[in-house]
Design a protein around this nucleic acid. Structure first.
Lengths: 252, 252
DNA sequence: GACCAAGAATTTGCATTCATTTTTCAATGG
DNA sequence: CCATTGAAAAATGAATGCAAATTCTTGGTC
């Protein structure tokens, strides 16, 4: 999963910022009601996009200048990001970007697998015929991309399909939690080198055939199984590499 | 030169410290390094234990006095609790205890089911023989409680078994997320009136037999299925009722 | 040249302060 | 009598101030 709708991370409306999607980048967008909500969204994007080196210190002062706020709302945002697992707070020593070891990556991947499995199960119960048709359409588009070896098109459809399944599950806490974990994993590039690994690509495509089939039959527990295995295989095939950080990440 | 502490298992994001620890009251317990962490834990317990009415306003001032801190660390804690989904923040109108509608309850239960299903699947991969033996022991104790209609003993063992399964999954993010959702649901008393519902009790007991059997055979996807169904049935049987709030909860 | 110690400068955590906003509540009018 | 209005009171959101801790710099020693 590369990019996608950057989920607001934690829970339903809880995190306030209803339309905080892509930070305050768009001028026309509704400005957040509170500064802290805006800073939270901006800072989350800033980190997820890899502007701070993993393990690097999160500089309060310079970020305050960058976002044009005082330390209070920024520190509130830091606490929330820590609770989301994106950074860690060292007592009296500030915040650091959380660095994921290989083992933690594996753990996160498994949780993603569990969440997708759940989403698939629920989707089988709740998806409409139209919702299924949309996924089927995406599947065929993805297959076309696969045939013509269009990696980008493939990834886009793939992402869309998984998102639709989560959406079809129609479960707000699930959606939020899924977005949170997706955000954590997005910080690492696990470019599943499909073009260097034709076997995996073909396998993934076959798995997607199974996914569509199970969904068509509304076979919840079957789909659940397939999705978990799908994520497992994806993890195994993923060549994990840390995100590269631009040299002038934080200086002003 | 930023030292990268790769090796040591970094503490999983404080996404949701299990609401188990009873604040920092215990003298032997490690006092939190920062005030905000202490206040966060205390306030979380305070809310989870039902001291604030659902939908009620969270009074900053009186809580500051209660915990003996200024508004700054308290407000930081509020932001985190909002991100955990325990309270909601209304712009310029303070925080309110999140009140769960029936539909949200259902959604949360399903996520719990998904997380337990995942835990079971992973547990089958990782559990040791000793770990299994411990669960088996708990199961038999629980069965004894069932036979003698000891509801309390039954619940205790039941809880312990589910916790052990999550523990056996050996996945820090899963553990944390599970604790978070469990805390949210703990705010509502869903007294599954087993004594008024012998059928359900017997059914639950049979399901636990299946659980143990699947775990013994390390049948991951099977156990996954059973656990999800188990939670579904539990939800259906649960007579949900809001927590009762002590009359003098917040007034001052 | 490497290592270590002491002090300066920065940074963190928290309390306090200030400007808005919301809420309360009594006076007014229909 | 009840709804409405307007000012007082309280609460919120954010900025600033300050003590304690950390980090960086400088100077000295082996």
């Amino acid at each position: 999963m590369l990019d996608s709708a950057t989920g607001p991370a934690i829970d339903e409306g809880a995190a306030a910022a209803p339309a905080a999607m892509h930070s305050a980048a768009s001028p026309g967008a509704t400005p957040p009601d509170t500064l802290h909500a805006g800073v939270l969204a901006q800072l989350r994007d800033f980190i997820v996009e890899g502007n701070l080196a993993p393990g690097a210190r999160v500089p309060e002062r310079s970020l305050c200048e960058r976002f044009g706020v005082s330390r209070t709302p920024l520190r509130e945002a830091l606490k929330v990001l820590a609770s989301e697992g994106l950074i860690e707070l060292l007592p009296n020593r500030g915040a650091r970007v959380r660095q994921l070891g290989a083992d933690e990556m594996v753990a996160l991947f498994d949780v993603m697998g569990g969440l997708e499995a759940l989403a698939g199960r629920l989707a089988c119960e709740k998806i409409t015929e139209a919702g299924y048709a949309e996924i089927e359409r995406l599947h065929h588009t993805m297959y076309a991309s696969y045939l013509r070896r269009d990696l980008h098109g493939y990834f886009t459809c793939n992402q869309a399909i998984h998102d639709r399944i989560v959406e079809a599950a129609d479960n707000a806490p699930l959606r939020t939690t899924y977005a949170n974990f997706a955000g954590r994993l997005r910080r690492v590039r696990y470019a599943a080198n499909l073009d260097n690994n034709r076997d995996r690509w073909g396998e993934a495509m076959r798995e997607h055939e199974e996914i569509l089939d199970a969904l068509r039959r509304r076979a919840g527990s079957e789909l659940s199984d397939i999705l978990f295995r799908h994520l497992r295989n994806k993890r195994k095939a993923a060549a994990v590499q840390e995100t590269v950080v631009p040299p002038d990440a934080t200086d002003g």
